[in-house]
Amino acid sequence: MLSTGALRAHLLAARLAGSVATSREESLRSYRLFAARDPRVMLGLDPEWGWGEGDLLRLMADKCGVSADPAHVSGPDVIDPERTVAALDAFAERLRAVAGAGAPVLFGTGHPHRLLGFYACLAEAMSAAGCVVLTPAQGVGVDVASRFGVRTYRLDYVRGVALVREPGVRSPGSATGAHTHSPLPVRIALGALADAGGPLPELVVGDHGWVCGAGQLGVEAIGLADTDDPALFVGEAEGQVSVAVPLDDAVRADHYRPLTRYVLNRAGLPVWQEWP
């Protein structure tokens, strides 16, 4: 079992925490856009409180460990590995509780190129524990606004994890999907479950719009978030998101493997040798 000390060392070595690739400029830009309620960074969240740039900077300093100094405007951003470890522990405890109840779960990612393997291993472990891993609205079209206009994707599932992909690019089941912040996929998935009479997920696990979109609809959600994704941490502060784990969400996919093992062990779920 990976110790917390070994996990902390890995987080720093892989730049999942510590000095990360996300720049201070990117983070501050996201905070400005969030304060202006720009939908590109809201990720489907509709906050109850008024969040100014200063409020967001203080929140992110508390949740992630970024500098609280507004005069610090350039260079790499920083995530405190102690906060990452504590959040991963809380993340694992929610998985443990849901697995113990054998409740249905829904997994989805807007970062399939980086995070698909992490979520897929969790999905397989939850299924082995007796949970139904939901895969609603397979193949349904999703119209997502982008800087190039509205683009139509389709909802697909790989090893129990939802993602969106451009129609015709790859066959269903392939690991290539599109990067997206949109909450529309989770809304469509949850709507399809509701129209079919359920069951609805007890927990949604993912990132970006999958977490905030579910939380905004009153479904418990936990996920991973970078320093330029303030929406998940605002959702956690306001109670729409149960756990937001601060880490760099765009490093090499294999760097998340130790996190998978750590979370599964902490959650009391099986870690099979063939899993990455």
Results as ranks from 00 to 15, higher is better:
118 F>S: 08
76 P>F: 08
172 P>C: 10
22 T>M: 00
1 M>C: 04
105 V>I: 08
14 A>P: 04
6 A>R: 11
255 H>V: 11
130 G>H: 09
118 F>Q: 07
163 L>Y: 10
134 L>C: 00
51 W>F: 05
102 G>N: 10
173 G>F: 07
148 F>D: 13
7 L>K: 09
103 A>C: 09
145 A>P: 09
126 M>G: 07
182 S>H: 08
96 R>Q: 14
180 T>I: 11
130 G>N: 07
2 L>H: 01
229 D>F: 03
267 A>R: 09
116 L>I: 09
239 G>Y: 05
257 R>D: 15
266 R>E: 15
254 D>Y: 07
172 P>F: 03
214 A>D: 03
45 L>N: 02
137 A>V: 06
117 G>K: 02
94 R>D: 15
248 D>C: 14
130 G>P: 10
33 L>Y: 09
100 G>P: 10
260 T>M: 11
203 L>S: 12
23 S>R: 08
95 L>N: 11
163 L>D: 14
156 D>F: 02
87 A>C: 09
27 S>R: 01
134 L>A: 04
240 Q>A: 15
96 R>N: 15
112 P>C: 04
251 V>A: 06
63 K>L: 09
222 I>S: 10
41 V>T: 08
249 D>F: 02
111 H>I: 11
10 H>K: 05
73 V>Q: 14
66 V>F: 00
80 D>P: 12
273 Q>R: 13
82 E>S: 12
207 D>W: 02
113 H>C: 04
163 L>R: 10
136 P>T: 10
154 R>L: 08
92 A>L: 11
109 T>C: 04
174 S>V: 07
212 C>W: 02
269 L>D: 02
70 P>C: 09
145 A>Y: 06
54 G>T: 02
22 T>A: 04
146 S>N: 08
73 V>F: 01
66 V>L: 08
168 G>A: 10
79 I>T: 14
197 G>Y: 01
252 R>T: 14
